[in-house]
């Protein structure tokens, strides 16, 4: 009886693993197919295939990167930047991604904004973007383990007390800083909602109505922060701090 029960459990586990593996296999097949379409310069079909993988609920940095490339080739600068930015959140140090993103941004038409105001914002944003949420979480975990190890060592090596205590204090400072960065990045991702303009040109208005006075213009590829949404309209903030109402179809959240 016991043997039968054990066999049953093993069968269930194996079938789940098999299903998972099969699902992963299909994604890989789709990815390869999309990449082949891209190589044949069928960018639109390639983008559709990449999008279909994303619709399954999974993501990967390379998937976003390739999708960004496909949109770039299609001339959709906004969607290209959007996907590059999504990839950047998963692999901020990838050289190819950085190069493509930099090139894409160089093609973005910028409205005349006060440089001194956007300079600091961009610096801070670039700094924060260089840390992924999972990367920061792993770093925190590592600091935590090292700190516990040092505390344990402190029990047995009391003669190294001064050195160990200084090290632990330094680790606590690094831990707090990393934790702050993590909180900020989580807040930016979960609450702030950065978005990219995906239409060629969009008008930010003073009021969320069609005939509202145009406050300023936004161009494809520009990044904005979505503050709140009311129906088809969203209140957004441009990099220079100017706030306006924009039609929700004009942007996509990163």
């Amino acid at each position: 009886m016991k043997i039968l029960r054990l066999l049953g459990i093993i069968l269930v586990v194996v079938s789940i693993c098999h299903k998972l593996h099969a699902a992963e296999d299909s994604r890989f097949v789709d990815f390869e197919e999309a990449s082949r379409l891209y190589s044949d310069s069928l960018f639109e079909k390639a983008a559709e295939r990449y999008e279909s993988i994303l619709k399954s609920g999974d993501k990967s940095a390379n998937l976003y990167y390739n999708l960004g490339n496909a949109y770039f080739k299609l001339g959709s600068l906004g969607k290209a930047i959007l996907n590059y930015e999504r990839a950047k959140r998963l692999m901020p140090y990838d050289a190819s991604l950085r190069s493509n993103l930099e090139y894409a941004y160089s093609l973005v038409e910028e409205p005349p904004m006060e440089k001194s105001r956007i300079w600091l914002r961009r610096r801070v944003r670039n700094f924060l973007d260089s840390f992924t949420i999972d990367g920061l979480t792993k770093l925190l975990s590592l600091i935590y383990l090292i700190a516990l190890g040092l505390l344990a060592l402190l029990i047995f090596k009391s003669q190294l007390r001064r050195l160990l205590m200084n090290s632990i204090f330094a680790l606590i400072v690094v831990f707090m800083f990393t934790l702050t960065l993590l909180c900020i990045n989580v807040y930016r991702t979960e609450t702030l909602q950065s978005a990219v303009i995906i239409t060629r040109e969009a008008n930010a208005r003073f009021e969320p109505i069609e005939g509202g006075t145009v406050h300023y213009k936004l161009y494809e590829g520009l990044m904005v922060e979505v503050l709140k949404t009311r129906g088809q309209w969203s209140q957004i903030r441009r990099e220079d701090g100017k706030i306006g109402w924009l039609q929700a179809s004009s942007y996509e959240i990163i």
Binding site: E24, R27, F28, F31, S35, Y38, I53, G57, D58, K59, S60, A61, N62, L63, Y65, N66, N69, A70, F72, K73, M91, S96, S99, N100, Y103, A104
Partner: peptide, 13 residues
């Protein structure tokens, strides 16, 4: 732009 990546890398939800 630099060419596409060969593999999708690690998938995550």
């Amino acid at each position: 732009i630099i060419y596409i990546k060969d593999n999708p890398g690690r998938f995550q939800e």
